[in-house]
Structure formats: structure tokens, C-alpha cells
């Protein structure tokens, strides 16, 4: 085999390999579209984060705007501290409401941001004050049972 055909084949091989890597990066891994650009960090405290995990999506109005970076336990407040990044293109008012929500009934949990009405926006590194913990299904059910029981209790007394 002559040098030039060999070089040609190797060229084809390497080009195909790089094309495959690009395909995986762009088309499959979506490095471009949903990737978060020039992110800034925000923090929020929750009584209960439920099943929220690091790298879970942060959404506002259902659109991906960031990702959860880190989840810690704050031993002074006895609360969970969630650090997350938000795309630099999006600014949120200081009275933004942070919820831990579930996509669908049993889907993955994510951090939802509901913007408030303030003019001032959250600066990088700031903390969101208004939060709502995850809805824990067991608590919800036991609450429901308790309410039902309380409702039905007076009946036998009669």
C-alpha cells in the first residue's frame, strides 16, 4: 500500500471519528442549545429538599434556566442549603419564590423559580429568601388520612 492511500484512509478514519464525537456532543449531548452560559450562583434554604439531587434542573415557567450545583446541610439553621447556577442571560427579582417541584406524579424533582414583582434583581451569590419545601408524598397522605379521621370522628359520638 502506498503512502498516499494510507494517509488518505487514516485521514478518513480520523475525520469520521471527529464527526462522531461532534455528533455525540452536539446532537446527542446538546452542548449548544440548553447549555447554561456565563452562569452565576444563587443559594436557597429549604426545610426539606425531598429527592432533589445535585445537577437537577432549575426551571422557570418550565424552561431550563440553570442547574443545582451542590446540596449541603446548614447546621446553624438546621436546614438544607441548595446552591445552584442560573444562566447569565436571565435575571430574577429579589422576591423570587423557589419551589422544589416534581415533574409528573413520580418524575424527577427540580427547582422551580417563580419571579416576584420587585424591580431589584438578585445579584450573583445572593440568597433567595422565599422558599417552599418539597412536597413529601407520605406526609401528604398521612395529612389526608388525619383530616379524614378528624372529619369522621364526631359521627360515632352521636
Amino acid at each position: 500500500m502506498s503512502r498516499t492511500t494510507l494517509d488518505l484512509w487514516v485521514g478518513i478514519f480520523v475525520a469520521m471519528g471527529i464527526a462522531a464525537l461532534l455528533f455525540l456532543a452536539l446532537k446527542v449531548g446538546s452542548i449548544s442549545g440548553s447549555e447554561i452560559r456565563s452562569p452565576y450562583t444563587l443559594t436557597a434554604h429549604f426545610d426539606n429538599i425531598g429527592g432533589l439531587k445535585a445537577r437537577a434542573p432549575v426551571k422557570s415557567s418550565g424552561v431550563l434556566v440553570g442547574r443545582v450545583e451542590q446540596i449541603r446541610y446548614d447546621n446553624e439553621r438546621f436546614q438544607a442549603e441548595v446552591v445552584f447556577t442560573v444562566d447569565g442571560r436571565y435575571k430574577f427579582p429579589v422576591d423570587t419564590f423557589a419551589n422544589i417541584l416534581t415533574s409528573g406524579l413520580l418524575g424527577e424533582q427540580y427547582l422551580g423559580l417563580e419571579p416576584g414583582g420587585e424591580e431589584k434583581t438578585l445579584a450573583p451569590g445572593e440568597t433567595i429568601k422565599k422558599t417552599q419545601s418539597a412536597v413529601v408524598l407520605e406526609k401528604l397522605i398521612s395529612q389526608f388520612m388525619f383530616d379524614k379521621a378528624a372529619e369522621g370522628e364526631p359521627a360515632p359520638a352521636k
Partner: peptide
């Protein structure tokens, strides 16, 4: 097919780790 895939596959976490 594609959008579900793109939503779930992370470049750094899945693609890069595989590489």
C-alpha cells in the same frame, strides 16, 4: 426521540465521561 435524548444527556456528565 431526539428532544428527550437531548434533555437527558449531559455533555460533560455523559458524553465526556464516556470519552
Amino acid at each position: 426521540f431526539w428532544s428527550q435524548m437531548q434533555a437527558a444527556v449531559d455533555f460533560r456528565y455523559d458524553v465526556l465521561n464516556g470519552v
